[in-house]
């Protein structure tokens, strides 16, 4: 299978929002980060992938198949972590394990036990008494304790401290060591995505601004620091966005279109996103 996830012309209209002809492809064995501001359509995209909402048009293939809520065999191969822990609050780990044993044919009780130990999850506590970090670790432990080939994570690391986030990112990197495994992750924490992702898809107001390989993306742009006059000498079509400060002007510019002599700094994913949205449309 070539792609773990393929989305073509996905469209969904709500009264207050439209996801507009979204396209993206996640090759098997890779991690794709979905970025965008609040309300950009990240969660809507994930809901549509998981068939939790019906698309108006477009096509989604998950592990080469069309996923519906009734695709049981396919869902055995998908691990999902939402932005909060969705286990009923009075359950304890032992009960969650027992319940999952009945839900997943491929449930691996030994693996769940191992992850419980690794994440130091408290055995005797109810879910409601877990910290946010513990809740997310529990969700991840469950997602990794069956035959998951694709992890779909919706803001799974938001609200966690940097140490826990780092631990979780390591787990994802460990998961991806198997070449048949893939991860699709949406997050606001762009530094996390920059660490682990192979591909970045940027959604803005329901539309894909770009969906590219991370290394190519980082190679494509630079931050140019110069005076306003110097910036005006650049080809306007190469300037994605700019911002003025008391120290001069900063702009996100296509790397290949910046002449010698300009001060160029590497652009981060966050720079690329911000200049496309917040400081875009101010081209000279």
């Amino acid at each position: 299978m070539e792609h773990a996830l393929e989305i073509k012309n996905l469209t969904k209209t709500y009264s207050d929002f439209k996801l507009d002809h979204v396209n993206m492809e996640l090759p098997t064995g890779c991690i794709m980060g979905l970025i965008g501001e609040n309300g950009a359509g990240k969660s809507t995209t994930i809901r549509l992938i998981l068939d939790l909402a019906k698309a108006d048009s477009g096509e989604i293939k998950v592990l080469g198949e069309h996923l519906t809520t009734e695709s049981r065999a396919l869902k055995e191969q998908i691990g999902v972590v939402m932005d909060e822990c969705n286990f009923p609050e009075c359950l304890k780990l032992r009960e969650i394990g027992k319940m999952m044993q009945g839900c997943y044919k491929t449930w691996n009780a030994a693996r769940f036990e191992e992850l419980k130990q690794k994440f130091c999850l408290p055995e005797g506590k109810c879910v409601k008494d877990f910290s946010r970090g513990m809740k997310m670790k529990l969700s991840i432990a469950v997602a990794l304790s069956h035959d998951s080939k694709l992890l779909i994570l919706d803001e799974a690391t938001s609200g966690l401290d940097p140490i826990v986030r780092d631990e979780i990112l390591d787990i994802f990197l460990d998961f991806i060591q198997d070449e048949s495994h893939s991860i699709f992750i949406s997050s606001h924490i762009l530094s996390d995505l920059e660490k682990i992702c192979d591909y970045i898809t940027f959604l803005h107001e329901g539309k894909v601004v770009f969906s590219e390989e991370k290394t190519e993306l980082l190679d494509k742009y630079v931050i140019v620091r110069c005076s306003e006059q110097e910036l005006s000498c650049l080809d306007p079509s190469a300037v994605i966005g700019m911002r003025k400060s008391s120290f001069g002007t900063e702009a996100l510019v296509l790397r290949g279109r910046v002449p010698e002599g300009y001060i160029k700094d590497p652009a981060t994913i966050e720079d690329i996103m911000l200049y496309h949205v917040k400081h875009g449309g101010k081209r000279l």
Binding site: V80, M82, E84, N86, P88, Y104
Partner: peptide, 19 residues
């Protein structure tokens, strides 16, 4: 009500469980 509060239904439908 417990399920609603936890967002369980949404999560359960991502598992091999039908509506």
């Amino acid at each position: 009500a417990y399920d609603e509060r936890a967002g369980w239904d949404k999560y359960a439908l991502t598992m091999p469980i039908g509506k």
